[in-house]
Simulated scan of single mutants.
Amino acid sequence: MRKITQIITPTTHDLGAFEVRRVLPSPHRRMVGPFIFVDEFGPAILPEDSGMNVRPHPHINLATVTYLFEGAIDHRDSLGTFQTIRPGAVNLMTAGRGIVHSERSPLESRDAPKPMFGMQTWLALPDGMEEIEPAFENVAAADLPIVEDGGATARVIMGSLWGQSAPTTCHAETIYADILLAPDGVIPIDSEADERAVMLVDGDAALDGVPLEKYLLYVIAPGAKVSLSSRSGGRAMLLGGEAFSSERHVWWNFVSSRKDRIEQAKVDWAEGRFPKVPGDADEYIPLPEGQPKTITFL
């Protein structure tokens, strides 16, 4: 257990058709590398008469990363982007000085059962880059490197791992990977990042023989050499990167190193100063009253 320094239990939010499990931020830890917000959602089948309908909402001073195992989500943002998110691809939306986006189930699937299973994470932007220009990129599954080793197949989503580098933009040093373990599969976990953590999302797995419980976040000791293994097969996410030396504050969908910047973003959203989302400008999520629980999804 000395190689595992912390185990974080998620807070589960029941959204009706599916559950969202949040491990970061938690009362016990704010960040792992640049990851300041980590949600796992599903697996679930959304019924025929419902779908994901997340109205336009704002972000500042962060980048969102959406990664699906199953299902599809239509993303629109105030840059004019329209992108259907599909399994194995990575959607990186850099909010910077401010962006607005929405997520909805594709129209063609509204009247059919819809699988939903994936990860939603936020990355804090480093000092000096919080107010950069908003941007969006989608990297297709075919363009992300695949590593195979000892009965394991890993897709590198961000950063460099196992000698392979993803083309996804990294504003800070970041590692992020989707690891599929075959029965009796084993893969070493790279030890170069300042901070690393693993979450089991399906099947079974163990870190150096320590069994992992699904949806908990296991923080690995800096520099520790560990291996991820499975008896009957499993799926796990590896995430982390450089440790931030300056504090970040989170309120609703806003992240910043400055509390006054978050206060300004509140006023800007309440007074309609953020840009509209082309093709989805008729609705929006109002500014919450009091201290929200940061449950806007995604």
Rank of each mutant, 00 (worst) to 15 (best):
R76W: 15
L216P: 11
V139W: 06
I262N: 10
G223M: 03
V23A: 04
P167Y: 14
I262M: 05
P211V: 04
K259T: 09
G150I: 04
T153Q: 05
T12D: 13
E213G: 05
D260E: 15
A72K: 00
L239D: 10
V210K: 03
W251C: 07
E213T: 08
I85V: 00
L298F: 13
P43A: 01
A193I: 02
D39Y: 06
P106M: 00
T66N: 11
T121G: 08
P134K: 03
I157A: 08
F244K: 04
A177V: 01
G16N: 07
A17L: 11
F297T: 09
S232N: 14
L46R: 00
D149K: 06
W162L: 07
Q120D: 12
G96H: 10
V147N: 08
Q264R: 14
R261E: 13
L24W: 01
N91G: 12
A154M: 03
L125H: 04
E19G: 11
R248T: 13
V226H: 03
I295Y: 14
L144Q: 07
L287G: 09
Q164E: 15
V250R: 01
V210A: 06
L15S: 08
R110N: 10
V250D: 13
S256V: 02
D194H: 09
S191D: 15
D143I: 03
M158N: 15
V198N: 04
A17T: 13
D190W: 13
G233C: 01
S232Y: 10
D190C: 08
P167S: 04
G233I: 03
P87L: 00
F244Q: 13
F69G: 00
P27V: 05
A140H: 01
F37W: 11
V54Y: 10
I175K: 01
D204P: 11
D178I: 07
L298G: 08
L161T: 09
G185H: 06
R235I: 11
P10Q: 08
L228R: 01
L123Y: 15
I132S: 07
G241F: 07
L92V: 08
N138G: 14
